[in-house]
């Protein structure tokens, strides 16, 4: 019993400390986004604006104000261009992913066809390859069809990421056989079974894909950095770090607005996110299940 008590203390002691470390950057950004111009210069001037001796640690501003947000809203049209670029890019990729990955996952989960296992292996290989390895092939095809430095250059290759296929396959494979067979006996065709049973029952998986995908493409840096030269097409992930140097006062507020869509989605769909992570792991397990 003494051991138990010990473990309890350990949990009570370690978890909160780690928890605090994990959420600290977010809280710090949030609190400091309420800081006024003068106070910001006094506190962080040494680093952000080359004035003063050293910076201070301030958890909460002494004179909270919403000035920074007002300034961001009224005086920085570039920020909003970047915001909508990010939205367009993310929504474009996700829409395309759903249109291609949902049927592909259905094919892997429900049909047996020649080459299925080889294709599956290929898809897993594509999933584990880092962007840098495929960037040269991406560049060759994009410049061949004249799409370099357009929004499509970021969106199109993103659509054919294979991770969503794995997450969805897991969901589809979980649909009980009896339901599908009953529909078949009732005379429903492949397409009707897919649209009428597969998609509605696969919704949890679809949400998982959307959430994981949003977090990934909202945060995409490599692709736009490689394929976009024109700054007015840059998403927030590229524009924001640059903005810190020129619009210092609004830096914290801009950071908060940038993370807001992702964090709100995260709070709304944490369960789907967790399922998505677990399903990604299951795809690799499926390499062996699929033997039969």
């Amino acid at each position: 019993m003494r051991r138990r008590k010990y473990a309890g203390r350990l949990i009570g002691g370690i978890l909160p400390v780690l928890f605090a470390i994990m959420v600290f950057p977010l809280l710090m950004l949030l609190a400091n986004s309420l800081m006024g111009r003068q106070e910001m210069l006094e506190t962080y001037g040494a680093v952000l604006a080359d004035s003063g001796e050293s910076i201070r640690m301030r958890v909460f501003p002494a004179y909270p104000t919403l000035r920074a947000y007002v300034r961001l809203l009224l005086d920085t049209p570039e920020y909003f261009t970047a915001f909508w670029n990010s939205m367009l890019q993310t929504v474009g990729v996700l829409t395309g992913q759903l249109l291609t990955a949902v049927p592909a996952a259905w094919a892997f989960a429900r049909f047996r066809f020649p080459g299925r296992r080889a294709l599956w292996l290929l898809y897993v290989l594509l999933m584990i390859l880092p962007f840098q390895v495929t960037m040269v092939s991406g560049y060759l095809v994009l410049s061949a069809i004249g799409l370099m430095d357009t929004r499509a250059a970021v969106i199109l290759p993103g659509i054919f990421s294979t991770l969503p296929v794995f997450i969805l396959r897991k969901t589809f494979a979980g649909i009980p056989r009896e339901i599908l067979e009953a529909a078949q006996i009732d005379g429903a065709g492949d397409l009707r079974i897919f649209l009428g049973i597969g998609i509605p029952l696969g919704m949890p998986g679809i949400f998982s894909v959307l959430i994981l995908g949003f977090l990934e493409y909202w945060n995409a840096i490599e692709q736009p950095m490689t394929y976009l030269k024109t700054q007015s097409m840059w998403p927030l992930s590229l524009y924001l770090p640059q903005m810190i140097n020129t619009e210092t006062e609004a830096a914290f507020a801009a950071s908060i607005v940038t993370l807001l869509p992702a964090v709100l989605l995260f709070f709304g769909g944490q369960d789907n996110l967790e399922q998505g992570i677990t399903a990604s792991a299951a795809s690799v397990h499926a390499l062996r299940e699929d033997k039969t």
Partner: peptide, 12 residues
């Protein structure tokens, strides 16, 4: 939570 926070936001 850190998974949801874009890298750009923590740059500052």
């Amino acid at each position: 939570l850190p998974m949801a926070i874009p890298a750009a936001s923590v740059a500052v």
